[in-house]
């Protein structure tokens, strides 16, 4: 046998490390995905607006001025003093819109995080342990799915009284079902992989396996569901506020603004259209981002 074939250690050394790292590939896919980029940019702008609201808002969103009620926006013949006009109490509409972004984003993020923690814990436990745990979780998911979210939220808020905190907690405790379903399914898929068996054979504890072997491989699904539930929570808050059972006046909330504007809708449609439009843009941006994240993280899963 010739020398070159017997030298065992040399050949893999010669092998090139093929391809870029998973991180590099992910970055390339992210920047190549149009929908995702649009979603991220729009959402990023809205987040910046919410953070820097005190600097950006031209007026105090709570300051009433009965002398300047119902001023139209600039493009309908208003003045630059109030670029988007004023509401029925003379409060600057643009400032209320800017502060309203804080409420919407906070509700979206916090409610989705609460339900994410609950749903992921339940879903991962059900998927990994199976058996009785799975049976109990599946039962709870079914119970939860049988409850109409809006109706339950309305009832609870009606009893406890509406406030930002109550709305966040109620939504957080209600929206975990999709997390649980998706995380259970993804865990079931990952649980059977040989690297999980290898970790067990190494002597890893169960929490360690869950955290370092299972979680990183289902995190992409978690992020996707997270964005969807954020959008869901934001819309539900708007709906509850519109019905008067969500965020209470005078807190600036987009749902509340639509509600307050609805009496004037026939004469001053912009009062409804402006907060409605920003709500639409925010939810669209989040959904674009969610869809994009699903697209860019999926191929890695398949390989």
């Amino acid at each position: 046998m010739s020398d070159a074939t017997t030298n065992m250690t040399s050949d893999p050394m010669l092998e090139a490390i093929v391809g870029p790292t998973p991180g590099q590939m992910l970055r390339k896919r992210i920047f190549g995905h149009q929908g995702l980029m649009i979603g991220v940019v729009v959402l990023g702008i809205l987040v910046l607006v919410a953070i820097f609201a005190p600097l950006l808002a031209p007026h105090d969103p709570y300051a009433q001025s009965l002398m300047a009620r119902m001023k139209p926006p600039v493009f309908l013949g208003g003045t630059w003093e109030h670029p988007l006009g004023t509401d029925h109490l003379g409060r600057d509409y643009l400032s209320r819109l800017i502060y309203g972004a804080r409420v919407s984003l906070m509700i979206g993020v916090v409610a989705a995080t609460i339900s994410g923690v609950i749903g992921t814990a339940m879903g991962v436990a059900a998927g990994y342990f199976g058996g009785k745990v799975d049976a109990v979780v599946t039962y709870l998911i079914n119970v939860r799915l049988a409850m109409p979210v809006v109706l339950v939220a309305l009832a609870v808020v009606a009893i406890l009284g509406g406030s930002l905190q109550v709305v966040i907690v109620v939504l957080g405790l209600l929206l975990w079902d999709r997390f649980a379903v998706v995380m259970r399914a993804s865990t079931l898929q990952v649980r059977g992989r040989e690297y999980v068996a290898a970790a067990k054979a190494v002597g890893c504890s169960t929490p360690r396996i869950l955290m370092s072997e299972i979680m990183p491989n289902i995190a992409n699904n978690l992020i996707v569901v997270m964005t969807l539930e954020m959008a869901h929570a934001i819309l539900l808050e708007a709906a509850l506020s519109f019905l008067g059972l969500g965020v209470q006046p005078p807190t600036p909330s987009w749902g509340l603004m639509v509600s307050e504007g609805k009496n004037m809708m026939l004469f001053e449609p912009w009062m409804v259209l402006i907060p409605g439009a920003v709500l639409f843009v925010l939810v669209l941006a989040i959904n674009l981002m969610g869809d994009g994240l699903r697209d860019v993280t999926a191929p890695e899963n398949r390989s």
Partner: peptide, 15 residues
Amino acid sequence: QPIFQDPYSSLNPRK
């Protein structure tokens, strides 16, 4: 210690 059949499934892709 084990060595498994499928080297595509026995290594955690995230590590």
